[in-house]
């Protein structure tokens, strides 16, 4: 009795998690490019596409619940399915934060180009790298890599502080930039939340592999 069908079902669900992850990653990258280029129409399409991300998340959730009901999983199987349910929630929220950045660009559309985004592109690069690393750790069941994600999260937090400093200085120096700098602060906040969600994914990786809940999102910074 090897449960081939059940194993195939779990593999299929893991593949679907990666599909959702790539949708979230594309949303982050696109929202930053649209912001950089001041492309309001692109941002509107990103906002529209967030529905597809939500739909995919609910499809995976429905499938997971059916598998739980029909297969009555135990032990590592149960942890794998529970982890999927949590990870897809984090991925969907990551895409929501990307959608938030797209909405900021729609509001900023009258701001002149080229946009000076300061440390925001660096934050985005690191957040996307964290997303990729967390999903790689998930698929490879790599607990050590999952724990190391904290260091990258600290770096994102540092960059957010730098964005904050720059924006405050800019507002003080030229009050006419208050609205634009406030929007940039929101953008940085969205990216910081994306990084936090990646640490949540890594906590689920650790739980799935070891069976132990471990809080890794404790900043040393």
């Amino acid at each position: 009795m090897t449960r081939d069908l059940f194993n195939a079902e779990i593999r299929q669900l893991q593949d679907e998690v990666l599909v959702l992850g790539s949708m979230a990653e594309k949303a982050i990258l696109d929202s930053l490019e649209a912001l950089r280029g001041g492309d309001r129409e692109w941002s509107k399409r990103i906002i529209e596409d967030d529905r597809k991300v939500n739909k995919k998340r609910f499809e995976i959730e429905d499938r997971c619940i059916f598998v739980v009901a029909s297969q009555q999983p135990m032990a590592s199987d149960l942890r794998a399915l529970a982890s999927i349910l949590y990870i897809i929630t984090d991925l969907e929220r990551i895409a929501d934060h990307a959608e938030g950045i797209a909405r900021i660009n729609v509001m900023l559309a009258d701001e002149p180009l080229p946009r000076k985004l300061g440390y925001i592109p660096s934050m985005a690069d690191r957040a996307v790298a964290m997303l990729r690393d967390s999903l790689k750790a998930y698929i490879e069941h790599d607990v050590d890599s999952a724990r190391q994600i904290c260091d990258a999260d600290d770096e994102v937090d540092r960059l957010q502080d730098s964005v904050y400093d720059d924006c405050i200085k800019g507002m003080i120096a030229d009050p006419s930039t208050i609205q634009r700098n406030t929007h940039l602060l929101w953008t940085a906040h969205n990216l910081e939340r994306i990084a936090d969600r990646c640490t949540n994914i890594c906590e689920r990786v650790i739980y799935q592999v070891t069976g132990r809940m471990e809080e890794i999102n404790i900043s040393k910074y």
Partner: peptide, 13 residues
């Protein structure tokens, strides 16, 4: 949820 012995894991799954 988290058996320690692989034989238990294999049986209950």
């Amino acid at each position: 949820t988290n058996p320690h012995d692989k034989r238990t894991e294999d049986y209950i799954t």
